[in-house]
């Protein structure tokens, strides 16, 4: 696909549905700009997970990033968000 690379990210509608499904109160809504910012937050979260796993694989001299690399960086990742 020749889609602009910089545009990979979560769609606003998806973020809205995702968050709304987790709200305890049905009356809670999410604003447009808040949804856009949350899309950015989730993108950073995934990118950070990928970058850190990649780094871990690099330090172990592996060509493929595997689940064991992700497992090692997961605790710190969760503490940072």
């Amino acid at each position: 696909m020749a889609e602009r690379e910089a545009d990979i990210g979560f769609k606003k509608e998806l973020v809205k549905k995702l968050l709304s499904s987790s709200f305890r109160d049905d009356d809670t809504k999410i604003g447009e700009n808040a949804a856009r910012l949350m899309a950015e937050m989730l993108k950073i979260f995934v990118q950070e997970a990928a970058e850190r796993s990649q780094k871990q694989a690099d330090s172990e001299g592996c060509d493929q990033v595997d689940i064991e690399h992700f497992e090692k960086i997961l605790p710190q990742l969760l503490l940072d968000f």
Binding site: I8, Q47, A50, S53, I67, H69
Partner: peptide, 21 residues
């Protein structure tokens, strides 16, 4: 979306991500 983001990071560093990760 996570898959596409991982793929992009992988391309930047010439490293592939396994399906499990």
């Amino acid at each position: 979306t996570a898959g596409r983001l991982c793929q992009k990071v992988g391309e930047e560093h010439r490293r592939s991500f396994s399906r499990q990760v």
